[in-house]
């Protein structure tokens, strides 16, 4: 038995030896290709990481250090100073909470709205369905500047200025999220729905207990998208919010941009803090997100 194994090993060794001689240039080529690949990837890595690094440098240094030549490339010791100054300027916790609250609430409600709309558009047949769907998609082409003033007037007429409701409401039905979810719902086997129907489940029950659970990856992707949209939303909150204590993070950050005097230490500290929740949100949903992407790739 052992002998046999030896023989086999030997032959494989010989084989590989022979093979090696044959394959040598090829492998070298492969190796060379890998080197190029990694160099290229490292360059991309540096290019994409550097702005974040620079942001961090700015957050830990005095504002004047941002202007030196050669540039300061090491973290400084002004982290706490910048943090306290920023807190004094805009009240970090208040605006962070505001933004988290607004974005969180928005994701939950918008997801419910968009998922329902997408489900109907994907799985039911009724007159004018195509028209409605096209109308949704076309509405993506309207620039927000065109709707800004009428919307503002509307909110003002409803006496809703300076409320979070006004911040969230106009975007609850988000065409891109509806589109994204609809495409995923299309792939859901209709047979499953039919068998549930035969078992006597109501339509709502089918949607909530059968369709939704299996669509988690798609919902995760949509919610990351919705969260980012609301978290970064600037113009609309700026226009409808009228007191400093209602400000969301981007609006509060922008208030640091005066005319000739701007403390970049504070600004950089602010943007550093603003990226943290997005990273956290992405990391928690990452698994779902990636499995969702793979799922659609395997189709």
């Amino acid at each position: 038995m052992a002998k046999n194994l030896d023989v086999i090993e030997q032959t494989t060794n010989e084989l590989t030896l022979a093979e090696r001689q044959q394959k040598k240039p090829k492998r070298k080529k492969k190796k060379l290709k890998a080197v190029w690949m990694y160099t290229l990837l490292s360059i991309f890595l540096v290019v994409s990481i550097f702005p974040f690094y620079w942001m961090f440098i700015g957050a830990t240094n005095d504002s004047s250090k941002m202007f030196t030549n050669p540039p300061t490339l090491l973290p400084g010791d002004q982290f706490m100073t910048n943090l306290t100054n920023l807190n004094e300027s805009i009240g970090i916790f208040r605006v962070l909470f505001n933004s988290l609250f607004v974005s969180g609430l928005y994701v939950v409600i918008a997801l419910a709205v968009c998922a329902s709309a997408a489900y109907v558009l994907a799985k039911y047949n009724f007159k004018g369905k195509k028209f409605i769907f096209t109308a949704f998609l076309l509405s993506m082409m309207i620039p927000y500047q065109a709707t800004l003033i009428p919307l503002f007037q509307m909110m003002s007429d409803f006496n809703l200025l300076n409320t979070y409701f006004a911040v969230i409401a106009p975007q609850l039905c988000f065409p891109f999220a509806i589109f994204l979810l609809r495409q995923n719902f299309l792939a859901f086997p209709t047979e499953l729905m039919e068998s549930a129907r035969l078992d006597g489940a109501s339509e709502t029950r089918i949607f909530i207990s059968i369709v939704i659970p299996s669509m988690r990856p798609a919902l995760a992707a949509a919610s990351i998208f919705l969260f980012m949209t609301q978290w970064n939303n600037f113009m609309w909150p700026l226009v409808v919010l009228n007191t400093n204590d209602m400000y969301t993070f981007p609006v509060a950050l922008s208030s640091l941009m005066g005319l000739s005097y701007i403390d970049y230490g504070q600004v950089m500290m602010g943007v550093t803090l603003a990226t943290v929740p997005i990273i956290a949100f992405f990391l928690t949903l990452q698994k779902q997100f990636i499995s969702g992407m793979l799922g659609s790739a395997l189709k």
């Binding site: 609430l105 939950v108 409600i109 006496n159 300076n162 409320t163 979070y164 409701f165 969230i168 007191t243």
Partner: peptide, 16 residues
């Protein structure tokens, strides 16, 4: 969902 809606309306009311 309805609780959140009510909550947002409430906050809307105090903010205003």
């Amino acid at each position: 969902v309805s609780m959140l809606l009510v909550l947002s309306m409430f906050l809307a009311a105090c903010g205003n």
